[in-house]
Amino acid sequence: MNITVETTIAAPVALVWQTWTTPADIQQWNAASDDWHTTAASVDLRVGGTFSSRMEAKDGSMGFDFAGTYTQVVEHRLIECAFGDRTLRVEFLPGPEGVTVRETFEAESTHSEEQQRAGWQAILDNFARHVRGKLGA
């Protein structure tokens, strides 16, 4: 089953793309709640290149690596990747209200669809806030 989340940001697509793909920015926005953070991130943005984000609870109680390989990259338009046996498609869709960032990912079996949708949407909402902050909005 696939799950899709999205947000629209009133910003230039080049800024949205850069913020999505820059490790220092990823460390600022990549968390589903205030008690988690991303302590390290790496990006080799090319087909066959890899990415990794280390996500940890701020109290040190747990953490995990989210990592995979890019399978398709179209600058300012599309990123597809594989992580484990799952896939993720991220579309950057310019429109009259700004850029819609749409993520479609294969669900996993440990958490409910609602939990997965809420978590991924929360991270995407943090991303949107971070981009707006870069604009001073």
Rank of each mutant, 00 (worst) to 15 (best):
G63H: 02
W29H: 07
A40R: 14
L15N: 03
Q72C: 01
G49I: 01
Q116F: 07
N126P: 05
T38S: 13
S61F: 05
T110F: 12
D25L: 02
T110A: 13
T39L: 05
E91K: 09
L15C: 02
A107L: 10
D35Q: 12
V90W: 00
T71E: 01
S109M: 13
A11V: 09
V74Q: 12
W29K: 06
E75I: 02
E97M: 08
M62V: 00
V90T: 14
G68H: 00
L93G: 00
T100Y: 01
T7P: 07
H130C: 07
D35N: 15
F66T: 01
A82D: 10
W120F: 13
S42L: 08
G84L: 02
A10M: 04
D65P: 00
T69W: 03
S53I: 03
A11P: 07
H130L: 08
A57W: 03
F83N: 08
S109Q: 13
F66R: 00
M1T: 09
N30F: 15
G136T: 11
F51R: 02
T4H: 05
H76C: 06
V73I: 08
F105A: 05
T50E: 11
F127I: 03
T21E: 01
Q18T: 09
T104H: 04
V73Q: 07
Q72L: 08
E106T: 15
Q28L: 09
F66P: 00
E113Y: 03
P23S: 09
P96H: 11
A31H: 15
Q115S: 13
H76T: 10
R54C: 01
E80I: 02
S42Y: 09
Q121L: 13
G48T: 02
E75G: 01
V5K: 07
G49M: 01
T38D: 02
A137W: 13
F51Q: 01
Q27K: 15
G84Y: 03
G63Q: 01
F92H: 08
A10K: 14
A122F: 08
R54F: 00
E114S: 11
E114C: 00
G60V: 03
P12A: 13
Q27R: 14
V131I: 07
V90N: 13
V101W: 05
Q18K: 14
G136C: 09
G84A: 04
